[in-house]
Write a protein that binds this DNA or RNA. Structure first.
Lengths: 292, 292
DNA sequence: TTAATAGTGTCTGTGAGACAGTATCAA
DNA sequence: TTGATACTGTCTCACAGACACTATTAA
């Protein structure tokens, strides 16, 4: 038994309470009567409470045996000076996936992998994660954020782009620290907005997805060894895996790895075969996460 | 190897093309210069292209050995007279989950299960599914829809509520029919908007989720037999399962089923033990979907 | 009785986990 | 040589799938 639903339903009872409160306080101005609200809406959809829509990015990589996420320092209020996930507003003419790919290029210098073009293009994996829309999540206005998850190989330090004054790869354990103190005892401010929750959801998605898909290869360079792939699993799951069983399992799964013929000794020891990701996207049977 | 990512990234190259087109045609009016756009946005988030935000519901149940979804007939243009998923606009003061629970109550007469209150409350399971935001998905204006997935036991015919003139449980195979003709040879119009895609994604989510979670019990009444649970799996997956192996597997998984002590003969044959859902939400090892 | 469903037992093949042992490099 | 990593082989236990067999009801 493991894993959890990232997003759960609220009881309808609480909805009623919220509605009643809004009616009493006069929030939602023109929508005082629920009946009137419904009628107006079905006939005139442009008469709606306007929302701003953003995309936020959980960009993960594995550096020095640790799962790291891209964080940018906020140059403006609110949360000025605090670390946040990269992201930005969706433009009037672009799709959500396009907006996410644009932000990924602008803020991380990464281009998204196009699933329609075959072959390794060294692009990052990008997928939609979940949407966050608590009315209070942004103090300025009603903002709904469509979070996306990106997985990338270990790359040089990210370039700071756009309105982000600073950017870095930070270990997710550090960004999600609950007690407010880092490894060196320095106080660490939590992430801005609800970004700690978004990051936690993204990490959990990555952890579960490398179990039953070949997505772990998205953390690797185009050519990699079995040992390097194993270190990805170990960093993402935070466990130690048996190198011998891992090798047998991963090389025995059809379509997961394709040998390139080359070898490398960049990890020391006996030369290791180089592989690239095979065509398979889903692993059956899956990799099994230990500690059940 | 199975399952697919519901939402994939667009190539960054295409984003560039879209941006160029927008700049040329003058779409997005006030945002002609990208630099100006970024600067304006970081300082003045309320100066944004306004979006309408809706929730759409994929409400699934199992009726007469078939997986069915709740469909409502549209009373207004666009797509007037066509079948669509229930849904509606998110109000100014409510969370996305609250909006989904409200629509579920209004349009299906179901209340959402509150995960914080223990014990069987006969509420439907409700979770966020994915968000759909293609600029052209609603011809009237820019609408971003946060789709939710609800699973409910077989219930009497849904009451039509709100602006929905009519509502029914329809087999998903019929709603997703590609050739445009139903079983009886009658022409069947496809679902409105992008609701066929949303429904397909919801069905795929349900199919994969009953593998590794105890969610299949959300399709059952509070007390049910092993055979009834098996028929749920068979309907959702569209396969036949061995009753003996299923029985052994499902009763042997800790926390999945709790015997109530009672028995029933409502399915005919030898009296069957009644169970209710146990506390476990995640099954390990999972149920295995056949035809690998 | 027959027909239907419920439930148990038993065999077999696959594969995960544990771990012994060998191979090939650098220092 | 030592120490690191790469890889192969072997044993055992758990469990999925197949299926024979028994149990208990209604008609």
């Amino acid at each position: 038994m493991r894993q959890a639903t990232p997003y759960s339903a609220a009881a309808s009872g609480r909805v009623g309470e919220r509605e009643a409160a809004a009616l009493t306080t006069g929030e939602g101005s023109v929508y005082r009567q629920a009946d009137d609200y419904d009628r107006r809406m079905s006939y005139d959809p442009s008469a709606f409470p306007p929302f701003a829509v953003t995309v936020d990015l959980v960009v993960l990589t594995v550096r020095r045996h640790a799962l790291c996420a891209l964080a940018v320092r906020r140059a403006e209020p609110p949360f000025q000076g605090r670390w946040a996930l990269p992201g930005g507003f969706v433009r009037a003419d672009e799709d959500l996936a396009q907006a996410a790919a644009r932000e990924l290029a602008e803020e991380a210098g990464l281009h998204a992998h196009d699933p329609s073009s075959p072959g390794p293009d060294n692009g990052a994996h990008l997928e939609q994660l979940a949407t966050y829309g608590d009315p209070e999540r942004d103090p300025r206005m009603r903002v709904v954020s469509v979070a996306h998850l990106a997985l990338a190989p270990d790359l040089p330090a990210p370039r700071a782009g756009g309105d982000a004054g600073d950017a870095r790869w930070a270990p997710v354990a550090e960004l999600l620290q609950q007690d407010g103190y880092g490894r060196d005892g320095e106080p660490v401010a939590p992430l801005a907005f609800d970004h700690a929750q978004i990051l936690a959801d993204g990490v959990e998605r990555a952890r579960s997805k490398i179990e039953y898909s070949s997505l772990a290869t998205a953390f690797c360079p185009p050519e990699f060894t079995v040992g390097e792939l194993r270190r990805v699993y170990e960093a993402v799951w935070g466990v130690a895996l048996d190198p011998r069983n891992f090798h047998r399992k991963v090389t025995g799964t059809q379509g997961f790895l394709v040998p390139t013929g080359g070898t490398t000794t960049r990890q020391g020891g006996r030369p290791a075969q180089l592989f690239r990701a095979g065509g398979a996207t889903l692993l059956n049977p899956p990799m099994l996460r230990p500690e059940v």
